[in-house]
Amino acid sequence: MKKITTLLLVSTFLVQCSTVPITGRKRLDLVSDAQALPASFAQYKGFIEKNKISKNTKETKEIKEVGKRISEAVDRFMRANNMSKEADAYRWEFNLIEDKTVNAWCMPGGKVVFYTGILPICENEDGIAAVMGHEVAHAFARHGQERMSQAMAQQGLSLAVAYGTRNDENSKIWNLVYGVGSQVGMLAYSRTHESEADKLGLIFMIMAGYNGEEAAQVWVRMSKRTGKSSQPEFLSTHPSNESRIQTLKAYLPEATALAKKFNATPIVK
């Protein structure tokens, strides 16, 4: 009986897969936008209320304008590729938070935060676009929902929970994502997301009219700022700076060709 149950679960997980647009990677897809996005939007709202939004109007305007252009490029791609329903689910929002942390992130559904501490690494508008493209790509590829699905599979949760609609069940799924990030077993999976977001982000920033060469330069500057990692790459949730630089440089010609192919409406910078 136990073996039959296991086989049924494995079969269901195999069936409940979808494909990441553009990259073609198969992803586990047990969590719908209807389950994930309300929790995402609520958490983002709470974060914005509790943290200090930058009063630098110039920098804030730049973050919002770059975000708008890149999200519009993504929206254009989705609507041209039979993904209008998915595109309608996004609620794009871009905020700059006064914080020295060198970071930026995007939650499911398109809620993006930049910390002022990352702006010197970005250095210019194209650098901001490189980071923005990467973060927007996480939302586009539904990495958050995939992490929830993976967490559910690892925890052996029932399919009833997977498809539950009650708030407490949704919260349980959401919280699982943030309980497994430090486990070594999840790290390689996270690196897959990071590498995929690097490539997709490069395409999106070029589609939006930005200089794709700057994506690798952001990581050159990051490397100078942080130095080499003190731990091996296989124990990191992110690829090493050197690895990212090499990957972005090597992928630039293909990203440029894909951006040209997807960009039905050219944008003049």
Rank of each mutant, 00 (worst) to 15 (best):
L7C: 04
L9I: 12
C17A: 10
P21G: 01
G24E: 06
S32D: 12
A39W: 01
F41D: 15
K45C: 04
F47I: 06
F47V: 05
E49C: 04
K50D: 12
N51V: 03
N51H: 15
K52H: 07
I53C: 10
K55N: 14
K58I: 08
T60D: 02
R76T: 09
M78H: 02
R79Y: 00
M83I: 00
D88A: 13
F94G: 00
K100M: 03
V102G: 08
M107C: 04
P108W: 01
G109V: 08
K111Y: 02
Y115R: 01
G117T: 02
I118W: 05
E123A: 15
E123K: 15
A130R: 12
A137P: 14
H138N: 11
F140S: 04
H143I: 12
G144A: 07
M152C: 12
Q154F: 06
G156L: 06
N167V: 06
D168F: 03
E169T: 09
E169H: 07
N170S: 07
S171K: 15
S171N: 14
N175R: 11
G179T: 10
S182V: 13
G201D: 04
M205Y: 01
M207R: 01
E214L: 03
A216P: 08
Q217L: 13
G227M: 13
S229C: 07
S229R: 07
S230N: 12
T237Y: 00
P239T: 03
Q246E: 14
Y251D: 10
K261L: 08
A264K: 10
P266G: 07
